Simulated assay, not measured.
Amino acid sequence: MLGEDQAQFIGVAKTKELYPLVCDPFQVSFLFNIPSSGLQVKGYLYSRIAVDQTAQELLDELKGVSKGHYECRPLVLTNLQSLDYDCKPNSEILTKGYFAHPSLQHGLSRVRHIEAYTKRGTATYFYRKDRPKNYTFLEHVNN
């Protein structure tokens, strides 16, 4: 878990481009790097300066970067809503986001696109310990 000393919450923003954001049957969310083919996705923005190397490594491990589940890529955000920062409505922010690895697109290509991964989605999230054991994570997604 990331501590307050490792990541500072900035606010909520939307992607400038349209991207497909989907959830698999276990409510794991996937943002695909297919610009202009989904919705403006809403998410949380954390300070890039405050995310130290340890926090970045923890996030990469959580997202399965080394396993080929996700990849961290540049991302342009807009419409930042923040209590602590004075933001112009159409200003753009260059940051990084976690996109699903391209190998996962086939299994989730027909899933409904969503605008944000919300509490409603997390309420039905299946933890790994509760998922069937006879499939790997990638097999679950592609089936």
Rank of each mutant, 00 (worst) to 15 (best):
A50T: 09
V22H: 05
L62F: 15
N134R: 03
S91A: 07
F9Q: 03
P89M: 05
V141I: 15
S36Y: 00
Q6L: 05
V111Q: 10
L31E: 10
K129D: 14
M1P: 05
Q105L: 15
E115L: 09
S103Q: 11
D84F: 04
G3L: 11
S36H: 04
P35A: 06
R128Q: 00
K63C: 07
N134D: 14
K96W: 07
K88N: 08
G97Y: 02
T124C: 04
F99W: 02
S47I: 00
R120H: 10
V28G: 01
A116F: 03
V111L: 04
Q81A: 01
L104I: 00
I93V: 07
K67H: 08
M1N: 09
G121K: 02
Y70C: 14
G68Y: 12
D52Q: 09
G97T: 06
H106I: 13
Y98N: 09
E115K: 15
Q27N: 15
T124G: 03
C23A: 08
E4D: 07
E17S: 06
L80P: 06
V12Y: 06
G64F: 15
L83S: 15
F30A: 10
G121Q: 13
E57G: 00
E4F: 06
L75W: 03
L138T: 13
E139H: 08
P35N: 04
P102V: 12
L75Y: 01
R131N: 02
E17V: 02
E4T: 09
H101W: 05
A50L: 03
L62D: 14
G38L: 14
L39I: 08
L58N: 10
V76S: 03
G68V: 11
C87R: 05
D60H: 08
N79L: 02
G97E: 04
N134M: 01
Y85A: 01
E115S: 10
V76Y: 02
G97S: 06
N142L: 14
D84K: 11
A55Y: 07
P132R: 09
K42Y: 00
